[in-house]
Structures are given as C-alpha cells and as structure tokens.
C-alpha cells in the first residue's frame, strides 16, 4: 500500500491539485483531450475527487456513480498507484502520491466484450 505520510501540495485556497485520468467516452463527454487537473479541498478521497470532478464537469454526473446511491457503476474501477481502490470506502484517504499530484487517480472502464 502506498504511503500516506508525504507532504501535500497546497494551492489556492488550501486546495490540492489532483490529476484524474478518465476513460475515452467520458473524456468525449467532458470535452477534454487528456487527463484533467482538479483542485480538491480537504482530505483526498474518492468522494472528494468525484465531487470536484462532477462540479467541474456536470455532464459526468451519473456516469461514474449512481445519481441516487452514489455507488460506483459496476463496470468502472478506480485505480491509483498501481492499486485497485474500487472496493475501498469512498471516504478512505487515497495515497499521498495522488494528493501531491505525483500520481493520477484513474477511472477505468472494465474490459468487457460486446
């Protein structure tokens, strides 16, 4: 498991710049060509990142997690620092390398045929 002890990079009003990599279809929807950078305030968790992502790109609401339950869609996965965080609690802290921007938070579409 990655370390949580590295210092955070704080920018602006105390937020941290987080890198997020989206799958192709969500990049198309959000009209971005590459990974996105988000300012996230507070502890860096899945929920905090997804809240910031949806605030910046409202078109992504409902595409990564359910509108009502806020649960991750079954065919999507969350990776960070070469580990699968999909089954961790949404408020669990993510590795410090994600918080510092050294590593991105990846939203990955599960491989499936059809």
């Amino acid at each position: 498991m990655a370390s949580f002890s590295e210092p955070r990079r704080s920018l602006g009003e105390g937020g941290l710049m987080i890198r997020v990599v989206l799958p192709m279809h969500l990049r198309t929807l959000a009209r971005v060509d590459d990974e996105v950078t988000l300012e996230v305030v507070g502890p860096i968790t899945q929920r905090a990142i997804l809240d910031a992502l949806e605030a910046r790109y409202p078109v992504l609401c409902g595409t990564i997690r359910d509108h009502v339950t806020q649960q991750r869609r079954p065919f999507l996965r969350f990776f960070a620092c070469e580990e699968d965080w999909s089954h961790e609690l949404p408020d669990a802290p993510l590795p410090s390398k994600v918080a510092t921007g050294a590593e991105p938070f990846l939203v990955v579409g599960a491989m499936a045929g059809g």
């Binding site: 279809h25 409902g62 509108h67 065919f75 599960a110």
Partner: peptide, 25 residues
C-alpha cells in the same frame, strides 16, 4: 453498461447535439 444513461438533444436536426439532464429518480 459502463456509464449509464444520458439524454442528448439537438436543435438543428441532428447536426450537433448537447447532453441534457440524465437524472431519472
């Protein structure tokens, strides 16, 4: 199956589209 439901709307007969609301509760 991956990303759920979207609704798209066109105002020019299908030349261009924009996503609109997709919240069905």
């Amino acid at each position: 199956g991956w990303f759920g439901q979207l609704i798209q709307r066109s105002n020019d007969g299908g030349k261009t589209w924009e996503p609109v609301g997709n919240k069905f509760v």
